[in-house]
């Protein structure tokens, strides 16, 4: 693997929040979605990746280069949007802001910038502070793209953004990824974005990574099975996450194994249906929070089992 980002045992302590230790790598040419509830540490993670917040422990390596080395060069190759980066400069107009940003994004392409302003219907003469929340998000996105970076770090780029612009963002990210060397780390609440664009999903919960997996692998392994009966030996199996009655059905995160075992026990499998990505993530979160037993639902396992369920990076 050729990592464009390597995060090694990164920790960051705040008064009421602790991030980490976090370890993961982003393979060049891939899109990683960071998902997690509000306050799970996504923005802190992005700030750390971008070098806006220095970790207390551990380090972040970008493009295989050592920290501090060629900082300007590294920054030029990154496009960052989010975390209220431009709030301190909100009295500037959008165009002035772009001019200002071009001091560190030295490769900013004027024509491309103009094209993006048009595309997202942004008035360059408007004061940033006077732009609506959605427009501010679009400005951040445009400024992240305009210098043609190789790595995009996007913290909720589409929050508050209108549908048409969201669609255009998705198109732009798609063409961005046509360059095989390019990579994206994106946090989002929009399921379609995760489903359509991403290769890997990183689940962040309470400042820690609870799972890092390839999208299709997880979709292949998780399923709902309607069965004729549940053999005793599988009743407390950690691979069975949930059992429901009428008609009898189970949810598993290890479909091929469970299927084989059921067939061995001569159980009829009436139907197999794969779960949607958002359902899978919900199960993982419910599991993390140890919320159990609503409406006669049976959840199995404990934290220890959980570690084996989600592929750790």
């Amino acid at each position: 693997m050729n990592p464009v980002i390597k995060v090694n045992s990164v920790e960051k302590e705040y008064k009421h929040f602790h991030l980490g230790p976090i370890d993961f790598e982003v393979e060049k040419g891939t899109v990683v979605a960071v998902v997690g509830a509000n306050g799970s540490g996504k923005s802190t993670l992005f700030k750390t990746l971008m070098g806006l917040a220095q970790p207390d422990n551990g380090y972040v390596q970008l493009f295989g280069l050592e920290e501090q080395k060629q900082v300007v060069d590294v920054k030029n190759r990154i496009g960052f949007a989010g975390s209220g980066l431009y709030h301190a400069f909100s009295q500037l107009t959008v165009n002035k802001l772009a001019e200002f940003v071009s001091h560190w994004y030295t490769t900013l392409e004027k024509d491309y910038y103009e094209h993006l302003l048009n595309r997202y219907e942004i008035n360059g003469k408007e004061k940033f502070a006077n732009c609506s929340l959605g427009t501010q998000k679009k400005v951040e996105f445009v400024l992240a793209m305009a210098h043609r970076p190789q790595l995009l770090l996007l913290d909720e780029p589409s929050a508050n953004v209108d549908m048409l612009s969201q669609r255009r963002m998705r198109e732009d990210l798609k063409s961005f990824m046509e360059q095989e060397e390019n990579s994206i780390v994106i946090s989002t609440y929009i399921q379609d974005e995760v489903k359509q664009m991403c290769d890997y999903i990183c689940i962040l919960d309470d400042g820690k990574i609870k799972g890092f997996f390839e999208k299709d692998e997880i979709r292949h392994l998780w399923a709902r099975l309607w069965i004729s009966s549940l053999p005793d030996q599988l009743k407390n199996d950690p691979r069975i996450w949930k059992v429901e009655e009428h008609p009898l059905q189970v949810i598993t995160n290890q479909l091929p194994d469970i299927e084989e075992e059921l067939l061995k026990c001569q159980v009829d499998i009436i139907r197999i249906k794969r779960l949607e990505l958002d359902d899978i993530m919900e199960y993982m979160f419910i599991f993390n929070k140890k919320t159990t037993n609503t409406s006669g639902v049976l959840l199995k396992g404990d934290d220890c089992n959980h570690k084996n369920k989600v592929k750790q990076n």
Binding site: T30, K174, M177, K195, Q196, M197, D199, E214
Partner: peptide, 16 residues
């Protein structure tokens, strides 16, 4: 189509 374009069309990962 390129690997990325096909992934987008089918909503699957480039790994696939």
């Amino acid at each position: 189509p390129s690997i990325r374009a096909l992934s987008n069309d089918l909503s699957c990962s480039v790994i696939t």
